[in-house]
């Protein structure tokens, strides 16, 4: 199975590759557009700022291949900045256009809060999602971020997290796309379970979507 981790210089690239390797799958870490387009499962990692992430993706010629891949309805996992990049735009450091795969924007936590939101927090799933199979609701995952998604279509919110009075989407997606604000590759047992589930579903049925939705 061609599992491709998109290499555009993201800082957590290797951690993601390690988590995939831990699941017993050898991923191809690649910056080549043809690898992205030809993948059977695609993972986009990311940390840092939205502007840098988008300009790195553009400079590497990866925006079109990623969009083409997602349009073809194959399993996609976005992590942290790889998740934020899916939305229409980010307000981090001015307005920066992103991939526009999911409707809405990325916005900052209100001032006065301790930011970044850093540490272990729980995720409350809104839907039963195959990628979360075997993961108890309200399990803990590791977060580190100052911005979070604000989707304009509520149906893309798959899971939520509460931080200091703010409830924000921590798992988003649609069909074969799933993306987390937290870092599963740094979330010990349950994070590794997500990678294992994602890879198993991609391998066994070529789809991570809930049954009957976008599966083929």
């Amino acid at each position: 199975m061609d599992v491709v981790i998109v290499d555009y210089g993201a800082g957590n690239l290797r951690s993601v590759a390690r988590a995939v390797a831990h699941a017993g799958v050898e991923a191809k870490v690649s910056a080549r557009p043809e690898d992205v387009v030809g993948a059977k499962a695609l993972i986009v990692p990311g940390v840092g700022a939205a502007e840098d992430t988008m300009s790195n993706l553009r400079n590497a010629g990866l925006v079109e291949p990623i969009l083409e891949y997602i349009a073809s309805d194959r399993p996609f996992l976005g992590v942290c900045m790889g998740q934020q990049a899916l939305f229409d735009y980010s307000e981090e450091g001015g307005r920066h256009d992103c991939l526009g795969v999911l409707p809405g924007k990325i916005t900052r936590f209100p001032s006065g809060m301790t930011v970044p939101h850093m540490g272990w927090n729980t995720v409350r799933m809104r839907v039963e999602h195959p990628v979360f199979e075997g993961v108890p609701d309200d399990s803990f995952f590791y977060f580190v971020h100052s911005y979070h998604p604000a989707p304009s279509d509520d149906s893309v919110v798959l899971g939520e997290t509460d931080y200091d009075g703010v409830t924000f989407p921590s798992v988003v997606g649609r069909g074969n796309v799933i993306a987390t604000q937290f870092h599963p590759e740094k979330s010990s047992r349950w994070g590794l379970q997500l990678y294992a589930n994602f890879l198993r579903l991609a391998k066994e049925r070529g789809s991570i979507a809930p049954e009957g939705v976008g599966a083929r």
Partner: peptide, 8 residues
């Protein structure tokens, strides 16, 4: 406690 279940 415990560990994650493997891919296959």
């Amino acid at each position: 406690t415990g560990t994650e279940t493997p891919v296959s």
